[in-house]
Amino acid sequence: MTDILIILLGTTMLYVSSVSRIEAYVKMLAVQGFLLFFLVLVGVRGMSWLNISFLVFETLIVKGIVIPYFLLTVIRRNETPREIEPYISQFYSLLVASAIFVFGFVAAFWAARNGSAIRPLYFGVSIVMIIMSLFLIVNRKRIITHILCYMMLENGIFLLSLSVANELPMLVNIGVLLDLFVAIYLFAIFFNKINDIYDGSHVDVLTELKD
């Protein structure tokens, strides 16, 4: 069951790297939130009640519903064009994505053989999610896709932290979630401002400051 969920998470990243509509990104973000929620539910054994309820809140409510909905309203408010406008074509994008997958799994099996108690699938897919988000960030022109890919990066990191047996203290968990939430909120505020002040929302407009 866990394996299927993780493979589905990896598939969302492949899907994201090949679609060209921004709404698809937001939908995949919500899907990732729900998949992470199910992963938490499946793997709860040995956790404290407090921690479980916090994780459920974090994945289902924040990552699955609140943030995608919030970003969707931001997109609608700014009437952003639908296309994401990549620097390289979808085909090559997908090709790179596959290469990242290969790398992720090689890294995971290497890590597992190094005597660490990690689960290769967990570890591999989270590495893939992290690297692929970084790749998508540098390969997309629109600022809104940068925000969406940042969320995917955070999801990848969350998956990685699930693969670790050690629980973080509650205070830290709350702090991490609060940071994430405020970051997304600020991103949206500044994104709105950039949209209002500049014509368009490409990163190309942000080239005034240089030496």
């Binding site: 970084l134 600022i143 940042y150 991103f187």
Partner: peptide
């Protein structure tokens, strides 16, 4: 605004 965006985004990543 440009400086702030670069700052917050680069540092957050």
């Amino acid at each position: 605004l440009e400086a702030t965006w670069k700052y917050i985004y680069i540092c957050s990543v």
